[in-house]
């Protein structure tokens, strides 16, 4: 049981797809303009990851090695198309605001990456845990980026129920008059991500230096 939790934790923190592995940045940077988008995209990616990881690890012994990549792609594309249909039917507002980035999940490298490096080598349950961990890690990273961008870019934070666009869960506005709208632009996404990565790297370096000091003593 503990190793399953470790797999999940691994995806959220130690091997966070956005902050540590820097995978799937295109869609992450593009849609992280609001918390609602982040949650919606996070759910979509998590769902696709779970479906593709579980299916691929179930049939991993049946797929001939030579054609495993095309088979993975077909499975992932099917999962994404299913998500697209479901979102169009049940979350039309989110479907509109995420736009072209939903079909683009097909080419999101997190999904193919996990299929190739984890699901094709591990058991179904482990792959499921990995998918949940990676999905949550992706969602968490999106939430952090979009919270910063929305707060500074629009001067407030809001969250709308992804399943019902008319139901606002919360909406605050703090300093609307001095919001920096650059942060809502794509360049703002790069700046935000750069700052977060610099901070994480700073922490990691500090830890390494401390360990080295300890060894010297």
């Amino acid at each position: 049981m503990k190793d399953k939790l470790n797999i999940i934790k691994n995806g959220i923190i130690k091997e966070n797809p956005i902050f540590i592995m820097l995978l799937g940045l295109c869609s992450a940077l593009a849609i992280s303009t609001s918390l609602t988008n982040a949650v919606g995209m996070g759910m979509a990616v998590t769902f696709v990851l779970i479906m593709s990881n579980v299916i691929i690890s179930t049939i991993r012994h049946l797929i001939p090695d030579e054609i495993r990549i095309p088979v993975f792609i077909v499975i992932i594309a099917t999962a994404v198309k299913c998500v697209q249909f479901l979102m169009n039917a049940y979350t039309p507002a989110l479907y509109t605001s995420l736009g072209v980035f939903i079909p683009l999940i097909v080419v999101n490298c997190i999904i193919l990456g996990r299929a190739e490096s984890f699901a094709s080598k591990n058991s179904v349950i482990d792959s499921l845990c990995d998918a949940i961990g990676m999905g949550l890690g992706y969602t968490l990273a999106l939430l952090i980026i979009s919270a910063i961008r929305e707060l500074i870019g629009t001067g407030g934070l809001s969250f709308v129920n992804p399943f019902n666009a008319t139901q606002t869960i919360f909406r605050f506005s703090f300093f609307k008059s001095c919001a920096i709208s650059l942060l809502t632009q794509p360049s703002g996404a790069f700046i935000t991500l750069g700052c977060i990565l610099a901070y994480l790297q700073h922490r990691r370096l500090k830890k390494v230096i401390e360990i080295q000091k300890g060894e010297r003593k």
Binding site: T33, Y95, T96, S97, L98, G99, V100, F101, T184
Partner: peptide, 12 residues
């Protein structure tokens, strides 16, 4: 009615 094919933030 439908601009989902356009880039969010640009064509949209």
């Amino acid at each position: 009615i439908d601009v989902t094919t356009e880039t969010s933030g640009f064509g949209s």
